[in-house]
Design a binder for these strands. Sequence first.
RNA 1: GGCGCCGUGGCCAAGUGGUAAGGCGGCAGACUGCAAAUCUGCUAUUCGUCGGUUCGAUUCCGACCGGCGCCUCCA
Length: 469
Amino acid sequence: MAPFRLFNTLSRTIEPFAPADGQTVRLYTCGPTVYNPAHLGNFRTFLFEDLMRRAIRLRGWQVEQVMNLTDVDDKIIVRAAQQGKTIREITEPVVEGFHADRRYLRIEDAEHYPRATAYIPEMIALVERLVANGVAYQAEDGSVYFAIGKFPTYGRLSRLDTREIQSGARVAQDDYAKENAQDFALWKAAKPEDEACGAAWDSPWGRGRPGWHLECSAMAMAILGETLDIHAGAVDLIFPHHEDEIAQSEAATGRPFARCWCHGEFLLTDGAKMAKRVGNVQNVADLRTNGVSGAAVRHFVFSTHYRKQLNLAAEALEGSIEAVRRLRDFADRLAVATGGTAALEDAADALETAVREAMADDLDAPAAVAALFEFVRAANRELDRGGREAGPLARAREVFALVDGVLDLIPAPVQADAELAAWVEERLAARREARARRDFGTADAIRDELTARGIAIEDAGGTTRWKVG
RNA sequence: GGCGCCGUGGCCAAGUGGUAAGGCGGCAGACUGCAAAUCUGCUAUUCGUCGGUUCGAUUCCGACCGGCGCCUCCA
């Protein structure tokens, strides 16, 4: 078996990967800041991480994943102040919406969804360690900062020159009294607006709240231990977020924070990064409204490798909707098939091999998707031939289910309510009768009638199948 | 300015030093009363442009053109 390989941002190369304990991959994935619904760009990253955990299990390992929910943050506080609410009142409905959207896209449940506000003691303890180690200091403004000058390997992950801020770079508004412009806040001294919305806690440095980077380090180490197997996120988190996580974690523990860093590329819209500040975001709610299934979104996202930018084009999404419809039809056909051929079994074997290799090859989803469609074509061909053997059919079902467990691209059938179903059956009976007496004008009129109600029919053998959509 | 990515058919998008996966769409055929679904064939002699290396490059090198990202709190 070929080694399982992942691209590690630390080395910028594809490396063999295995969990440190040989059994369970401890995976930390940066989750959403819950002040607004996550957009499709965010979800592209979460889909990449979903694929990762499924690929890990396909490989035979267990996975323990943490996805944090950042529920205390500048933007949340601003929103709370605007609406006269507490941060909890702002974040609670957004968290619920996040999970609903996530399920729509069939992103599996992580084992842990810790909220930053539930780990304040762990965060404070981490800051205390850093202060004790002499790499953090409290400034005149009361906030506690990490002194990057005390951490010699700062910048190793992002490979950025830390000595100078180049022209063209976005320049920080220096809100805080840092010793060095690049030092980052571990603990932010509370301001009146923080107190007003419940975003302040007691600490050895006075009332305050955690800095963003600190949240991840504290929660990751609290739940998964001091060295993670994989830490994942999107490329925009490489700097400063992950760089800072490494600094504060390793400066506290003296151990590597993560063995492998994986970063997904952006989803673009209209040729630009999808982002709220660009104003080109689309949400899962928009997709639902337009009838785009989660399966179709998965197909679209997995058509490109996770480390390559993907442009959200309406025409491509339409293509994914159609592609996934084909999978649905095939799945139905496979379910009711009564036998197969030797060639069907060969196709199934080829599919399993291709998908296992693709997933082990730095999560090569495009290759897996291509293999799946090659299988569908071959299998349809064999089913057309009407094989009778049970073994090959069972094998085809087994492998198809295995692959479905990784990619999860088959849309759920649209269920018709009982009333509609009864009506359809009545109309089909009338059509059957008309066809029997070769009154095709009436039969076609009935078909048009059904089509107008969104019912598609297929005459197959002696029977007629129908479905919604 | 620094670092990095990308440019493949109508659209999306794989890929390899030896002559272009897959999906959508389109065209033709089989099947069908007609459709639909499915299958079959066709749909890039060519991979941004110009050079170079090589027996041979889309794949390696260089330049140029074009697009994108990161460079302090953005997945």
